[in-house]
């Protein structure tokens, strides 16, 4: 096999217990174990993480930004999904 064909991995890091894993970048590695170890070395050198997820980039499916206008359109006219939509008297407390 040709050299340099290590696949690309997307790296997600949980910065502390209780928080979500967040995308921090990507790197090349031969397999998942190596991706995790390399991610530790490049993305958590200063205690930035307590947990690492790696996903091979080819398995990430994304929405198409060109369709954004129509794709997100169904939510744009539904203001009644927000609490501020409802007209209630000021004396109503704890709601």
């Amino acid at each position: 096999m040709a050299e340099n064909q290590w696949p690309l991995w997307e790296i997600f890091i949980r910065s502390k217990q209780g928080l979500d894993h967040k995308h921090v970048g990507s790197l090349h590695a031969a397999d998942a174990q190596m991706a995790i170890e390399n991610a530790r070395d490049v993305y958590t050198r200063r205690m930035e993480g307590v947990s690492i997820w790696v996903v091979e980039s080819k398995y990430v499916h994304a929405s198409n930004p060109d369709d954004a206008a129509s794709f997100y359109d169904p939510a744009s006219d539904k203001v009644y999904r927000h609490p501020t939509f409802y007209d209630l008297p000021d004396e109503l407390k704890h709601m």
Binding site: M1, E3, N4, Q5, W6, A30, D31, M34
Partner: peptide, 12 residues
């Protein structure tokens, strides 16, 4: 780089 790939393949 080659050895790492070979190892990854063997493991899988």
């Amino acid at each position: 780089r080659e050895a790492a790939l070979a190892h990854a393949e063997k493991m899988s």
